[in-house]
Nucleic acid binder design. Structure first.
Length: 662
DNA sequence: CAGTAG
DNA sequence: CGGCCTTACTG
DNA sequence: GCCG
């Protein structure tokens, strides 16, 4: 609580007071459907009161109605009917008409929940225009069950710089209480400045966060970009210290297969530091170089040993090539992890071949997924050339267009998006192009299963892995009535599919393919997450965590510790932060105060370093060293491929925001 | 509980 | 000594 | 294994 909000140089603004009670005169009613869960409503309750507004007891006394974007017309209709009935008013038979009747009887402005979220984020009254719900769009297209009627306005937040002229969106009568205030607010020039800008940490700066911000360079997700994908053959960054690198890599692999993730992490760090070293380690003095300041005592001892004897006992002594190597091979089977590998090893399975024969014997029982993983072990081990990924994308894109027209956008993520020349699997992310499309498309699960069915039908998808038929979730559409049960669940309605595909060509191999469908609001987070790389994500999430947030593939939240989540006690949750101010990956970086990194710059190899105290000297030295001395490394690191080159590689320039503005 | 995904 | 990323889902 |  002891937070000094002053620490982020606020320039004196004439409207400080205004921002504080931006909700003055608002009586809000939140429709208890969709993601407007009870817990969320409670938070909003508190916030709106803090901002000088209040809550309406019922829709009938509200000045503003707040509606969650994913609530379907029918759903809202049934809720409206109940409400009308309770008031003794006639409801129409048709849900959509009922909504219209309700909205006419009320004297409120209907807004998307994102409006409130945006207001809370900016701590000022955001223009309502873009968040209005079109409740009577039905007149045009009412005829069919399809009813493309969009309740939610299309253009979400992220209003790019705009004039504040024609604001004052006709406030409801009850707002007359404070006409002067509202007036002043709308043409206050400060709002113009604050509104379009996404504020770092939501505007809540603390000394801790400020410090973190200063040290962000120390996180891998902020390192200068890594190598652009191999373009010309000229510079294979063959490092000096090859021997050392390979030794520590062995240690890393050893502990990886053994399941000691922490040592694995540690050794990976060491190996990658050595790999990027601009000099060769030849003497113990070299150990004092700033680049190596992160190495601990044990590692230093190993280095010294190497310098003295030319080898490292610990490494030589790895009899692993019997035990650990077998473990590694078994874990290479999709669906097999450390525990299973150990179990099998204990029962006499050393190799994939052993497993196969034991399966034949009936000695070993595998899950369905493991059987598939076993069947295609060799094929899955093959990298997929970038060009083939392109073909696969085309096939899926064709199916998407055929079934959903232009309503869905598709992005290939994973290593493909990072520009790699070959990929381990294909990772596709789907999302409605706009809020309007989202409503028209229906549930993400329906979209996904219908797409998958299509791909199955044409023989492109050959096998399902887990998640293949997880239509386990609440389809959300025909639930009798949850009018009073606004609980729902924030299930976040993302749908995921894991499977196997194969191009219809002669020698084509079976490939792993993942397809995910995410809600529009979560798309930037999903895109960021599934683009990776893994270490990059971990680094960025660690940073977010240090700043007091929790970053995931769905959203970013304040990290409040909540316990007693049943089994896992360590669940961190918190009030969702600004669900809506994020329309692109850039916004997430911006929110965290991080410099944006293009997908091809997220190939984190330089480890993820947590913060150090305040070792400015060392930091500067390191920076100088890597930018100056390590010319051969950093030169190619920080230069993006030319535009033409990017196009040749199939990169798209970022167009995310554009697609949302319809 | 173990395993999957980036 | 405890953290080291995240979270939901499946068998 | 390293860090605070």
């Amino acid at each position: 609580m002891a937070v000094s909000k002053r620490s982020c140089g606020q320039e004196a603004s004439p409207s400080k007071a205004l921002r504080r009670d931006w909700a003055y005169g608002i009586r809000l009613f939140v429709v208890p459907l969709g993601s407007a869960t009870a817990s969320r409503r409670m938070i909003w309750d508190r916030e709106i009161k803090a901002a000088g507004g209040c809550l309406a007891d019922s829709p009938w006394s509200a000045t503003h109605m707040l509606l969650s974007p994913e609530v379907t017309p029918v759903r809202l209709g049934t809720w409206a009917e109940k409400l009308l009935e309770a008031r003794g008013r006639p409801a129409a038979n048709d849900p959509v008409t009922s909504v219209r009747i309700l909205s006419k009887s009320l004297q409120a402005t209907w807004l998307c929940t994102d409006w409130l979220i945006a207001c809370l984020a900016k701590q000022c009254r955001v223009l309502e225009e873009k968040f209005k719900c079109c409740l009577d769009a039905s007149t045009e297209t009412l005829d069919h069950e399809d009813r493309d009627c969009h309740f939610i306005a299309d253009g979400p937040a992220v209003a790019k710089p705009q004039k504040t002229e024609g604001s004052s969106p006709a406030l409801p009568a009850s707002a007359t209480a404070s006409p002067a205030r509202t007036e002043a607010e709308s043409d206050d020039s400060d709002v113009e400045e604050v509104l379009p800008k996404l504020r770092v940490f939501g505007g809540e700066m603390t000394p801790k966060r400020a410090n973190l911000l200063r040290n962000r360079e120390k996180f891998a997700c902020q390192r200068g970009g890594q190598d652009p994908p191999k373009t010309s053959g000229s510079s294979p960054p063959k490092s000096r210290n090859e021997k050392l690198v390979s030794m520590f890599s062995r240690l890393q692999q050893h502990y990886e297969s053994l399941g000691d993730g922490w040592r694995e992490r540690s050794y990976r760090l060491t190996a990658s530091i050595l790999r990027g070293l601009p000099f060769e380690v030849t003497s113990e003095e070299d150990l004092d170089r700033s680049e190596l300041r992160r190495l601990g005592k044990k590692t230093r001892d190993k280095l010294k040993e190497f310098l003295n004897t030319g080898s490292i006992g610990r490494v030589d002594g790895l009899h692993m090539d019997e035990h650990a190597k077998a473990l590694a091979e078994l874990q290479g089977i999709w669906g097999v992890g450390l525990t299973t590998a150990r179990r099998w090893l204990g029962s006499g399975c050393r190799t994939v071949t052993d497993v196969r024969s034991q399966v034949q014997d009936g000695t070993l029982r595998l899950s369905a997924d493991q059987l598939i993983g076993l069947q295609f072990f060799e094929e899955f081990a093959q990298r997929i050339p970038r060009i083939e990924v392109d073909e696969i994308i085309q096939v899926v894109q064709a199916a998407v267009s055929r079934r959903f027209g232009n309503r869905l956008r598709m992005e290939a993520c994973g290593s493909f998006r990072r520009g790699k020349a070959s990929c381990g699997d294909v990772d596709l992310l789907l999302c409605a192009r706009s809020a309007k499309d989202e409503l028209a498309l229906g549930s993400t699960h329906d979209v996904l299963s219908s797409l998958v069915a299509d791909l199955h039908g044409q023989g492109f998808i050959t096998h399902d892995l887990k998640g293949g038929n997880q239509s386990h979730r609440r389809p959300g559409g025909h639930v009798g009535q949850d009018v009073n049960d606004g609980e729902e669940q924030q299930s976040s309605t993302a749908a995921t599919y894991f499977g196997v595909c194969q191009l219809a060509r002669v020698g084509s191999l079976h490939r792993r393919i993942d397809i995910k469908v995410y809600p529009v609001l979560e798309f930037p987070f999903a895109l960021l997450s599934f683009t990776g790389s893994g270490p990059f994500n971990r680094s960025m999430r660690l940073y977010a965590r240090r700043a007091g947030f929790s970053l995931s593939d769905h959203s970013i939240c304040r990290a409040a510790h909540a316990r007693g989540n049943g089994r896992g006690e360590r669940i961190w949750t918190g009030p969702p932060i600004a669900a809506m101010q994020f329309a692109s990956e850039r916004d997430i970086f911006e929110f965290l105060g991080l410099a944006y990194r293009e997908p091809w710059q997220r190939e984190v190899d330089a480890s993820w370093l947590a913060e150090t105290g305040t070792d400015k000297q060392a930091a500067k030295q390191a920076t100088a060293a890597t930018t100056g001395l390590a010319a051969d490394v950093s030169s190619q690191a920080s230069s993006p491929p030319a535009k033409a080159e990017r196009e040749a590689l199939g990169w798209k320039d970022e167009d995310e925001v554009q697609s949302l503005s319809d």
